[in-house]
Design a protein around this nucleic acid. Sequence first.
DNA 1: ATTAGGG
DNA 2: CCCTAAT
Length: 699
Amino acid sequence: MVLQKRLDYGFNGYQVPAIPRATRSARKRVPFRKRVEGNQTSAFDLLATVAGTLLLDKESSPASNNSWNAEDQSAVEKNNVKEERQDGDQSLKLETCNVSELVPQTNDPNYSSRESRSLQNGNQFGVTSALTTSECFERLDSQKLINGKIKNEMGSLACKLETGPFVSRTPGDCVEPVSENKVLTDEELDRTNKASTGEVADKCPLEDPLVLDGKPPAVVSSDSSIKAPSFGEHDPFISFPVQQYDVNVVSRDDDEKSSGCTHPSPIREPFRSTPRIGDRRIRKILASRYWKVALRSKNATYSNYDENLKSGYCNRSTYKRLRSGRNFPFKKRKFLHYTSESNSDGGTISEGISDLPEKNINGKASILYSKMHGVTGESSSLADQRKSFNSRDPHVKLRIKSFRVPELFIEIPESATVGSLKRTVKEAVTAILGGGLCVGVLLQGKKVRDDNKTLLQTGISRDNQMDALGFSLEPNPSHASPSLCPGGSPLTLPHDIPLPLARYPANPGLVNQVTCHPSTEPCIPNAGNFIESNNDCTADMFDKSTTESKALVAVPAMSVETLAAVPVHKKSKQSEVAQRRIRRPFSIAEVEALVQAVEKLGTGRWRDVKLRAFDNAKHRTYVDLKDKWKTLLHTARISPQQRRGEPVPQELLDRVLNAHTYWSQQQAKQQQPPESCLPHYNSTMIGSGRCDDDENILG
DNA sequence: ATTAGGG
DNA sequence: CCCTAAT
């Protein structure tokens, strides 16, 4: 009775019917189908597509989790690592990792179906479900130049892979590694490695590499505990920076099983060592910033694009999953590994980019991958695109031959097995790809910052521009503090000039941009709907990251320790390490909306408040609103001098105070329903003296 | 999934 | 904002 009435009547006496849960659930949304025509794909779409491709790649196979362990005999992978003694720990510095060629195709309404067809019909492309990172030894020099830092002490890893023709594979298939491809035998690997070694030696005369080929690797249990002794008299730790690291992720999981006969993974022995027995901490440092190497769950992966996707599409259905996974903190803890059966929403085809990974899992491949094949000598060219020759085809087809992953450090004891090393690198890269990945688009060396521009507008769709188009993987700015972001990562081109790109008006054809224009300011919420103010679009983040990354240069030694503190290899399982959400101070308008909603609904009904006033602000959870109210209350109670941040109008603070006292009394009244019908209202309130529920309070 | 409160 | 206990 009383309770029910409390729910139905608002602070101001307005009737505020409780919203039925079934219908008011923020997550119940009508599916939205994105439709764009022609070259209307915005740069953002492109980014999302690429990112989705990467993610998809990573998740496309259930076995891919351990894929890095699986290169062994048949897997096409080789790692040449140059070691350098250094304080006991092995420091791998992966300046670049090239991700295998992928072929994102944007803006195709019939996308999924087309790709499926393609898969069925021919083997032109294959979904390898493998993240193939491939070397480019030849790029070393240029890479160094790009980075502006020559590292003589750096060894080089040459991992040239010849994987042969494309392999076709159905998305759902379990990784049957490159059956049709040329499978490198141990011998072949060995030979190749040696060749590479020689090459390396030539380029790095300072080093005196030893090849450890043939040494039986230590057996490592699944929990990564070391069961085998370290190599002879050598120090347990070695430090070997890797300039180039070629990794081929194959969806196999036989690393551990075949531990005893792990193929030789050439590691050049250090010429100097420092005795030290330490824990098996693995330190990985990404040059541009210190990544939390701990793997983020795949859901976290989505989360990273949450904001972007949302801002890009403002499409509820498109990211409803994301939303529930990211904006509602309680879900962050529940990340689970996806299985191939994962089919959370079984959405229709061509939903949106955010659905790509899922689609693939569902067997509806949306993106094709092709095996990387000896793409070398492309110093700074991050991608190679082809455009459909059919001029009538409004779709831009890109083929990204390789991706560069930001430089990263890895520290691992020399007693660790090659398998664990691979695992470690895998985790590091996976963390990057799955965690704070950002994709940048470069056109003629310049960053395309405006995500809202279409490919056409940008010029990406033009033939003459295809050569100048590049992609870069960048750390997600929200994943690390700028101070930890030293020198330009290999991803960032040296001449990263801020482009004064004019913001093009949102393309009318893009539904998503209507409500999502970055300049959209939260209008004064008339209790109806509160326009979201999710302005942190990717473009801005990009600017920030690239700008900041240029400021700093060296990797502070201390941060190594910092990073090491992160439980890296704890169990490559659910190291989801949910990152803290970015701070988003409430705007005055939001406060206004909050106050107004609380006045009507009262405290304690945060979900309704959320739905009422912040339903469109997906980054505001009811917990956020509750917290904000809490702080507002606190702010209202302290002296104005003590307040910080954007000053909240006193008027609003007063209302906060009033509403709080009012609803507190209401709450108290319900404690003792009986004779507590005393009209003791706050003096500032104007209400009838009735103890009923329809009191009127001054707004 | 929500709410309430501490951190 | 995060985390948790309690609903």
